[in-house]
Design a binder for these strands. Structure first.
Lengths: 206, 206
DNA sequence: CGGTAAAGAGAACCATCGTTCTCTCTTGTG
DNA sequence: CACAAGAGAGAACGATGGTTCTCTTTACCG
């Protein structure tokens, strides 16, 4: 899941990119509080002064790290979003399954970061919230376009499964998590037809 | 979710219990790497020497912290496990919903801890794995007793929903997370009847 | 060609990290 | 009553946390 963005939107720079790449790898692998700036600086072949020339504080690096992960997920999403109807939902599900279980998989970078930042007002938590909104809205749009009568319900259900799936992929068996997630998504897609029959009619709240 | 166990299985002690209580509150609220032993010692009105007389190292305190959370969840589980059939599944679901959204809720203590300990062999990760196995087995037994044809599938699905639900309860809206989780569990219970009709027959792998 | 900005090198800051130590005082049990 | 164990108080350890500093060298841009 962690991938440094290929093109930084702000000023690009050799040193900055190396710092971001090292931070991405280390933060994801060992947690944010568990990795000091010295480690990142050393891994980047950069000096402490150079680091602080590019990032006012460690927290700014954390934000940039999560932003870069987000950017790479947005890039990967373009392909899936081109699909139509239920196929799009399937492709988004495949994205999630693709994240799980590769060498060094440690769960969702955003969820892991969130557990280390307790202040909901913190800039770090805001990037996380933005990313989650982005993902939820994308899934909701997919269900709406596929004709689901309660796209909000379905999207929240989908996101809940995906959060559980990346967790299980980290802590339990990756392949089992993928299978369970797939079954859940398939059921959710089937519910596009079944839902009106199974639940009593009620307008969904946003 | 974090609650110090009422009766420590090992040697009980005023100081030890205060340390564990303070650790439980601080570790859960701010993360484990984010809280130093000095903070815990100060909050417990205990000296550093006393702390190290009871816990060989900080890691042992972390393990004791998670153990105590596990113990209190086990205690709470006894009531639900007394129920029969589908009602038991509903009660376990209610337990999960009860965890979510109270003042200071910060998600699952075990999931948060797991994100800070990357070594799967670490004693901390082992308590986490034990707890997850305990919960999964309990759910699986509930589905089996309720007559589900693939209790393993259903249990993994249930656990995935619960992991996603506590996450959403922390990062998104608690009440929405509860509703979404409830809908998911209800669907899972309904699938005890529907499943044989919807999916092709195949023996579930453990 | 000259100037400005970025990067390297390295020391230093103080606070906090987890851990160990000594020394005194209380307390309960034999 | 005596003696051992538990707890309080407080200093200290070296290592590392994030951050700032000075000084020199490189390299691009007008």
């Amino acid at each position: 899941m962690p991938t440094a963005s290929d093109k930084a939107p702000a000023k690009r720079s050799e040193a900055r990119e190396r710092l971001l790449a090292a931070a991405t790898q280390l933060f994801y692998a060992e947690g944010i509080n568990g990795v000091g700036v010295d480690r990142i600086v050393a891994a980047s072949n950069v000096t402490l002064a150079t680091f602080y020339r590019h990032f006012p504080s460690k927290q700014d690096l954390v934000v940039a790290y999560l932003q870069s992960v987000h950017d790479s997920l947005v890039a990967r999403a373009a392909d899936s979003d081109a699909a139509e109807g239920r196929e799009r939902i399937g492709k988004i599900g495949a994205e999630v399954m693709g994240e799980i279980g590769y060498e060094g998989f440690r769960g969702c970078a955003f969820l892991n970061a969130a557990s280390e930042f307790e202040d909901p007002e913190s800039p770090v938590r805001e990037v996380i919230a933005d990313h989650r909104r982005w993902f939820h809205d994308r899934v909701r749009r997919a269900f709406a376009d596929a004709g689901h009568e309660r796209p909000g319900h379905a999207a929240r259900h989908f996101v809940m499964l995906r959060d559980g799936a990346v967790t299980a992929g980290y802590l339990d068996s990756p392949t089992t998590a993928q299978r369970t997630f797939k079954r859940g998504v398939d059921g959710l897609v089937r519910s596009i037809d079944l839902d009106p029959l199974l639940e009593e009619r009620a307008p969904e709240e946003p």
